[in-house]
């Protein structure tokens, strides 16, 4: 049973991690929580659904269809996130800290209602891009969907790691996250780097939306809320603003939630309580999170 729950936990954790990265990237650079991120992920899953409805030919069942769905959803969610930044946050960049936060809650409500009113009020079944087959590894039942989910998430995280650590633009993103004003003195156009950060964070959210739909089989206008808040918890747990922390926090939270559901009597009823208790305890005991220790700058 432990192994079984571990597989389930890693699957859930990989989705949380992808979403948590979106929160942490934006926080790292602008020190704001993008509460609209949960809706970006929801819209990402609807992009894949729309493509499937209107152009099913480009989404064949199998790996090709999955990759096409991921790419299109990531593009859609990424661009949406950039548009949100441009119109809802950038005008408030020099306003009080609370202003963009409230604006992000507003964007979240607008997006949820837009999908509710114009797209669908119901659960919609998500295209079966990958045939669900069950097999067993060391006594634990693993589905092909779980493997695809983990592999996609880990692949994307490795891609992000390479981008952030080894490309010039990725390094500029880290420089902006360290010191936005000084980055400008280096000739770095910080507005463009901020937009790029929203693009990357949104794209990872869009991918999470597709993986969510794939795993649960159906999507709905409010699907982003719970995973969004939990991924936010994961980001805080790992240390908000810290990229490795977001991944670590996502996996820890996913595994904890699934273990609780498996081992505590009626645990699955309590799993949300457990997740949010984690948030409260981290905020009380170690608000900087597991890896969230900044190196002090010497003056």
């Amino acid at each position: 049973m432990f192994l079984q729950q571990l597989v389930n936990g890693l699957t859930l954790g990989s989705i949380y991690s992808l979403i948590a990265l979106g929160y942490t990237l934006v926080y790292g650079i602008l020190v704001m929580i993008n509460f609209a991120h949960s809706e970006v992920l929801m819209v990402g899953s609807f992009v894949a659904l729309a493509v499937f409805r209107f152009a099913p030919a480009i989404l064949p069942q199998g790996p090709v269809g999955l990759i096409v769905a991921l790419v299109l959803s990531m593009a859609g969610a990424g661009v949406l996130n950039v548009v949100i930044e441009r119109f809802a946050y950038r005008p408030l960049r020099h306003a009080q800290k609370l202003a963009p936060l409230i604006s992000s809650i507003g964007v979240s409500i607008v997006l949820q209602n837009a999908v509710f009113l114009w797209v669908s009020t119901q659960s919609e079944s998500f295209p079966e891009l990958i045939a669900a087959t069950q097999f067993s590894i060391g006594g634990a039942g693993v589905s092909s969907l779980q493997l695809v989910c983990m592999a996609s998430a880990i692949g994307l995280m490795m891609g992000l790691h390479f981008f952030i650590e080894h490309t010039k633009v990725g390094k500029a993103m880290r420089a902006c996250s360290d010191d936005l004003e000084t980055a400008g003195l280096m000739g770095i156009d910080s507005s463009r780097i901020i937009a790029l950060t929203f693009l990357v964070g949104g794209a990872l959210g869009g991918a999470a939306g597709v993986l969510y739909g794939l795993n649960y089989g159906s999507i709905k206008y409010n699907l982003g809320f719970l995973p969004g808040v939990k991924a936010f918890t994961a980001a805080v747990l790992g240390g908000i603003g810290n990229i490795r922390g977001a991944v670590l926090g996502g996996f820890i939270l996913g595994i904890m939630e699934v273990m609780a559901a498996g081992y505590i009597p009626r645990g699955s009823d309590w799993k949300d309580v457990i997740a949010f208790s984690v948030l409260i305890f981290v905020l009380l005991l170690r608000p900087s999170g597991i890896l969230g220790e900044k190196i002090a700058e010497k003056v």
């Binding site: 010039k168 390094k171 500029a172 880290r174 420089a175 996250s177 360290d178 010191d179 004003e181 000084t182 980055a183 003195l185 280096m186 000739g187 770095i188 900044k294 190196i295 002090a296 700058e297 010497k298 003056v299």
Partner: peptide, 23 residues
């Protein structure tokens, strides 16, 4: 070069220099 140095603390020395030549 601003007051208080303002190096990028979480970037390596080499990466800081690379950022100086960013454009």
């Amino acid at each position: 070069v601003p007051e208080g140095r303002h190096v990028f603390p979480r970037l390596s020395v080499a990466e800081n220099l690379e950022m100086g030549a960013y454009f």
